[in-house]
């Protein structure tokens, strides 16, 4: 299982369970996100709390998922980026594309 899903009142939390968000998981992540979005068109927050690094393939899958989400009137934000991942987002200006939460918005699970 690449991530676990936890519905909240205003968003759906997608907590990545892999330490290495790389090309080994990119396609699966994209496919699973499409399934989720097809099921429920809500804002999603992807938590990188367990993730040590992200490579370009996984980043591409994240962008692809965002594009799909927007086409379905949903949205994707990210949370808990470590220093290296935050630097990566900033480097290629993904910080202009994704809303970045330091922590999760304070809400109770639905």
């Amino acid at each position: 299982m690449i991530f676990q899903v936890q519905p909240h009142e205003d968003y759906i939390l997608v907590e990545l369970l892999v330490k290495e968000a790389n090309l080994a998981y990119a396609d699966t992540f994209k496919q699973e996100m499409v399934k989720l979005i097809d099921r429920e068109s809500k804002p999603y927050i992807i938590s990188f709390k367990n993730v040590d690094y992200v490579d370009s393939s996984f980043l591409g899958a994240l962008v692809s998922s965002l594009k799909y989400a927007i086409s379905k009137h949903a949205d994707i934000a990210v949370a808990y980026l470590n220093k290296d991942i935050l630097n990566l987002f900033s480097l290629i200006r993904m910080d202009k594309v994704f809303k970045i939460h330091q922590t999760l918005p304070p809400q109770q699970p639905a």
Binding site: D55, S56, S57, L59, G60, A61, V63, S64, L66, K67, I70, S71, L88, L91, I92, R93, K96, V97
Partner: peptide, 23 residues
């Protein structure tokens, strides 16, 4: 320059060489 508005659908999904070039 950062566009005032843009369509995320226009974003590319290939970043590997760009990441290395920028670093």
């Amino acid at each position: 320059d950062e566009p005032e508005s843009y369509d995320p659908q226009d974003l590319l999904e290939h970043y590997g060489l760009l990441i290395i070039a920028k670093h």
